[in-house]
């Protein structure tokens, strides 16, 4: 079945061109000019596999849309940013976006990003359960089933957060640099924006750490990268 792509952009030209291109790429596209309509679409229960969202919108803006859509859908979100303003991009990532491209982008670039976010977990991932934290929970990652459980309760992660955690957990205790994580999770090359990693690590910590301000599970190794410390 064709993956379902939601496009949210108030610019008719971009929306139309993008819809045509993405249909060419084999997506089942629904395109909306306003956040209100796009939210209503997701809230109605229509399945969405991936979203492309413009930040600058009339009415509800892109940041607010991402925050409101997150409880409804785990689908990866790529942000279209007209501004290269660094603050905007970080704010969008904090709101729950998974990646971004700046206008004007070329189609090959956007297609590659979408593919990367929708990639299935690689075979190299641990296939059996990994106990991340024996003391609290226990916190158990099951890559095969795509779940993270604390005790009997499921911990809710977005697709990208889940993949990031799987990378760190294969195997745990190994330091992974930001460029390596960018390459493996986002399929970005040398010029990738390392803030993607930092923001996602921050979001991941709020979900898996008992105290996110003093992380003990996902540790920062100064100057090198991140490491998962199983306890």
């Amino acid at each position: 079945m064709a993956p379902r792509l939601l496009i949210l952009d108030d610019d008719d030209g971009i929306r139309t061109a993008l819809s045509l291109a993405m249909e060419d790429d084999g997506y089942d596209v629904t395109a909306w000019p306003s956040a209100e309509e796009a939210l209503a679409h997701v809230a109605s229960g229509a399945p969405v596999d991936v979203m492309v969202v413009d930040l600058m919108l009339g009415g509800i803006d892109g940041f607010t849309f991402i925050r409101r859509v997150r409880p409804l859908s785990d689908a990866p979100v790529i942000v279209l940013s007209a501004r290269q303003d660094k603050g905007d991009i970080v704010a969008a990532l904090e709101a729950g976006a998974d990646d971004y491209v700046t206008k004007p982008f070329d189609l090959a670039e956007l297609s590659a990003r979408l593919r990367a976010l929708r990639r299935r977990l690689e075979v190299a991932q641990p296939s059996s359960e990994v106990v991340l934290d024996r003391e609290q929970g226990p916190l158990v990652l099951d890559p095969a089933a795509g779940t993270l459980r604390r005790g009997t309760e499921a911990v809710h992660l977005t697709a990208t957060e889940f993949r990031l955690l799987c990378e760190l957990a294969s195997p745990p205790g190994r330091v992974l640099s930001r460029p390596v994580l960018l390459q493996r999770v986002w399929d970005h090359g040398f010029f990738g924006d390392e803030r993607l990693v930092d923001v996602h690590i921050r979001r991941l910590r709020t979900k898996v750490e008992p105290d996110p301000s003093t992380p003990r599970l996902v540790a920062t190794v100064r100057g090198l990268g991140y490491r998962l410390d199983v306890r």
Partner: peptide
């Protein structure tokens, strides 16, 4: 915005 639409 128009440039992006054009490029696409």
């Amino acid at each position: 915005s128009p440039l992006t639409a054009l490029v696409t």
